[in-house]
Simulated scan of single mutants.
Amino acid sequence: MSDVLLNFVAGGVGGSCTVIVGHPFDTVKVRIQTMSRPKPGEKPLFTGALDCAKQTVAKEGFFALYKGMAAPLVGVSPLFAVFFGGCAVGKWLQQTDPDQEMTFMQNVNSGALAGVFTTVVMVPGERVKCLLQVQQAGNSPSGVHYNGPLDVVKKLYKEGGIRSIYRGTGATLLRDIPASAAYLSVYEYLKKKFSGEGSQRTLSPGATLLAGGLAGMANWSVCIPADVLKSRLQTAPEGKYPDGIRGVFREVIREEGPRALFKGFAPVMLRAFPANAACFFGLELTLSLFRLLGLGHGAKKAEEK
């Protein structure tokens, strides 16, 4: 089980890389997903991802794209640590021998299991992040002004206790179980393809970035509709959706149609490649360092050879 701990630590490094590279794209995505539908004759608040980024920088400055980053940086690093640790647990549960190569479906199972593990860590950070991201020039759809992540947590707890902080748990599970399954399985599949045949498989930095970026795109191509519903649920005023994600879904379909479920698709895909390329690069770099230090099963195998 030492590999679980090493993957946990390496995942934390990868998660930090993901947040730093991808947060501006995420801010644009959330603002597009949560903007209100324009009234007849009115222009939409944003005409697209580029317009949203331009308006945000023009009105609030460049660093507005990094609003709410403290919450995911604190939450995402352990989140990715839990994810990759969970993947290692899934691998350990399915292997009969430590050297057994995982099949595509076994990686699907490991990713899905890790997606369940990450929800407990992810939901509060996602709730805080989304509320700060949609707060434009001091205004918020919920009508409440927040001065930062801690202020969000305090006000949410005062408003509805732990349940308010964890609003969107079901929606997050609906998003992350299939997305995590796709994420890990596609990365591992591409990793094998890019590293060549035979016992001396090596993955170049470029191949790692490519495999990680494509895995990120596979992850988001699966889960974008659930992410739209989650963002709306987590930024709505208290009590607006008493039946949770089902109420959000009915409202979106009734008022905006199925296309609204893919709002933010462009910034999501623009973010997915560089952010997840950075994630897996950080992960593999850290695991390589561990192997150089003689830690983990991979290092033991190298010594035996």
Rank of each mutant, 00 (worst) to 15 (best):
V9D: 04
V9N: 02
G11T: 03
G12I: 05
T18V: 14
V19N: 03
V19R: 00
K29V: 09
V30F: 10
T34G: 04
S36I: 10
G41L: 13
E42Q: 15
P44V: 14
L45S: 04
F46E: 07
C52I: 05
G61F: 13
F62T: 09
L65M: 07
G68I: 06
M69C: 13
A70I: 12
P72Y: 07
L73G: 04
V74N: 02
G75T: 06
L79R: 00
L79C: 10
F80C: 10
A81H: 01
G85K: 00
A88I: 02
W92V: 11
T96N: 15
Q100W: 09
Q106D: 14
V108M: 07
S110R: 00
G111W: 01
A112W: 01
F117C: 14
T119M: 12
T119D: 08
V120S: 10
V120A: 15
V121K: 01
V123G: 02
V123T: 08
R127Y: 07
R127W: 05
L131S: 03
Q133C: 15
V134P: 01
Q136K: 09
Q136D: 15
P141N: 13
V144A: 07
N147E: 15
N147K: 10
G148Q: 07
P149E: 11
L150H: 04
D151F: 09
K154L: 14
K154C: 11
L156P: 00
Y157L: 14
K158T: 15
G160L: 09
G160M: 08
G160I: 08
S164H: 06
D176L: 12
S180M: 10
A182P: 01
V186M: 07
Y187G: 03
Y187E: 07
Y189G: 03
K191M: 11
F194S: 04
S195P: 01
S199W: 08
S199A: 15
L203P: 00
L203I: 12
A207R: 01
G212H: 02
A215R: 00
A215F: 03
M217S: 04
M217Y: 02
N219D: 14
S221A: 15
P225H: 05
P225Q: 08
A226Y: 01
D227W: 03
V228G: 00
S231I: 08
Q234H: 05
Q234C: 10
A236Y: 04
P237W: 14
G239R: 03
Y241M: 12
G244T: 06
V248F: 05
V248M: 06
V248A: 05
R250K: 12
E251S: 09
E251D: 15
V252K: 00
V252P: 00
R254D: 15
E255M: 09
G257W: 10
A260L: 06
L261F: 09
F262A: 14
K263T: 13
A266Q: 04
P267S: 11
L270C: 11
A275Q: 04
A277H: 01
C279S: 07
F280T: 01
L283N: 01
L287I: 06
F290I: 08
L293P: 01
G294D: 13
L295F: 12
G296H: 03
A299S: 11
K300L: 12
K300C: 08
K301C: 12
K301D: 11
K301Y: 10
E303C: 08
K305D: 13
